[in-house]
Design a protein around this nucleic acid. Sequence first.
DNA 1: ATAAACTTTCAATTATTTCTGAAACTTCAG
DNA 2: CTGAAGTTTCAGAAATAATTGAAAGTTTAT
Lengths: 172, 172
Amino acid sequence: MQLAEAKAQFIANWGRFGSNWGINRTMAQIHALLLVSPDNLSADEVMEQLNISRGNANMNLRELMDWGLVQKVIVPGERKEFFNAEKDIWKVARQIVKERKKRELDLMIPVLKELSEVEGDKRDKAVKTFTDTIQNIRRFSEQADKTLDTMIKADEHWFWSSLIKLFGAKRD
Amino acid sequence: MQLAEAKAQFIANWGRFGSNWGINRTMAQIHALLLVSPDNLSADEVMEQLNISRGNANMNLRELMDWGLVQKVIVPGERKEFFNAEKDIWKVARQIVKERKKRELDLMIPVLKELSEVEGDKRDKAVKTFTDTIQNIRRFSEQADKTLDTMIKADEHWFWSSLIKLFGAKRD
DNA sequence: ATAAACTTTCAATTATTTCTGAAACTTCAG
DNA sequence: CTGAAGTTTCAGAAATAATTGAAAGTTTAT
């Protein structure tokens, strides 16, 4: 396979993948494009390579910057802005975990606390099922919260090799 | 807060949460409803409680069954079918990981292998960046593949307590 | 075999999300 | 200042996804 085709395939797949995970397809495609581009790209180059409008490119680049996955790069002597994506996938994964945790888990935990305080007689089956389920989700979420915080701080080598050792030991 | 309101809030939040993760809102809401319902519900009850049509209820219940999150329960002597959701969130999480892995990661890995075999001179910067990035993603994916397989088989207590020990040890 | 009870399907509609493109805005060199 | 180069915004258009509801299909009791 030639580079151009491989690149196109990668972009298409990354886009499809992203949309399964609640990320807009174009945003994932821009990310993919930047991941495999040796040089930083201008908005014009992104527009041209992905065949999208200026507004669309601008909006999704901003969104990628909000996610901390892309940086704006100012080149002295150039009017244009350029965009650069972090290429180390471990760092990318950690950044995504960090953001999703902030945007979702951290918002969910107080809601669960609130819901766990529902009024009513625990002998009522409906109340019991509700509180039990919420408690179960709450404990799970709090555990995940701690674990993800640690992962966010971890370095890749340590993280994987610890898990391998851990899981290896269990499997014996 | 009264049970009815708490239930409504939980369903709304679970639905919103789901749609952030590429899961249709109604599907997540039906799941939430079943999670907090002490008894198995018929399609009619689901329709009524969520104010959705018969077709919608049917389609999303089927999807939930495909994901292995809901089971159809036949009650002897009743014509209707009833639906039950697994309430242990650890089991739910494992099931979701298992399905997503099957539907996404397992499909992505062969694509990455294919893309890593791109033709061209490695001294060409564009080729080098492409292959390096793909390799990096590939290694990451393969590591995640193994780790998730182990998680899918793990039991909750062992899983969390091992992680705590691991992360606790590192933090010291 | 029939018909009531129930489930499934799917074409058409509705809702939601994404994208475009042109206008407004900003920045900077001369 | 002025205007060219570049960026941002956002209302309307287009694309995509979800939902309805009625017809077709299935199952079961008699």
